[in-house]
Design a protein around this nucleic acid. Structure first.
Ligand SMILES: [Mn+2]
Ligand SMILES: [Mn+2]
Ligand SMILES: [Zn+2]
Ligand SMILES: [Zn+2]
Lengths: 125, 125
DNA sequence: TTACTAACGCAACACTGTTGCATTTACAAA
DNA sequence: TTTGTAAATGCAACAGTGTTGCGTTAGTAA
């Protein structure tokens, strides 16, 4: 009976990500925490939050990894929405309403999607 | 008048990527070269080939960076096709014919796209 | 052949992410 | 409230990826 525990690190990190209107990177989270916990702990907390369906991971066009809150992923992650990355202010935003459509060749089995666009966000354009 | 030069490293790397039917990572290229040149040189050659519009960079869902040949990018890169990444054989393939459609909110200015799917490729499914 | 400089090799570095292990601590049960 | 268990943490050490500076090599135009 392995029961998950609510630690301060987990609580704070979860709150940071969920209340943010843009996706956050590991280093950005670390700066905000100001030494509250080790950087390894942050990685492990992020891993746990993903497994719990609370947050999801975004790999940007430039390779930078960010994390954002989920809205309806309690059981299983399903993110077929677009992520927008601003080249000026470096912000990454989930566009939950924008879901691309496309026709795949048969024989391909899809289990995960990642749609990332970059350019200028409304604030920067 | 800075004129680009055709070195053996560049020729071999370009040939490797363009003739491959799957995208290649830096480490995969390095293994193929068997010490022909330094790993830093590989990075610099890849950079050059991208700038010349010969190859393009693909950031996978898992963060792994791969490189594939371009087909019609002589002047400016435009890759709005899908990249498929097989979770079993780890191959990354360009699906040049598959271009997603979507409706973006106004005020966003798009300059780059990255569509990556993962799952099982025809060979592995 | 020569001069110029693009391209290279090497060393050193920063950043990201992972792993092992001893220690701490949340929390269920007593 | 106290106690036992193991989930979670801190720390050190490590691997992989990508970058930068600088002295040297080598491609190519003149
Ligand atoms: Mn998202
Ligand atoms: Mn491609
Ligand atoms: Zn912006
Ligand atoms: Zn496969």
């Amino acid at each position: 009976m392995k029961s998950p525990r609510n630690t301060t690190a987990k609580t704070v990190i979860q709150d940071l990500i969920v209340t943010s209107n843009v996706a956050l990177s590991h280093s950005e989270i670390q700066k905000s925490l100001e030494g509250l916990c080790d950087r390894v702990t942050i990685y492990r907390v992020l891993e746990r939050l993903i497994k719990e369906g609370v947050i999801h991971k975004i790999v940007n066009v430039d390779g930078v990894v960010k994390y954002a809150g989920c809205h309806s992923c309690s059981v299983k992650h399903s993110h077929n929405h677009i992520h927008f990355s601003c080249q000026k202010c470096k912000s990454v935003t989930c566009l939950e309403d924008v879901e691309p459509t496309f026709k795949m060749p048969k024989k391909y089995i899809i289990s995960e999607m990642n749609f990332t666009l970059s350019g200028l966000c409304p604030q920067c354009s």
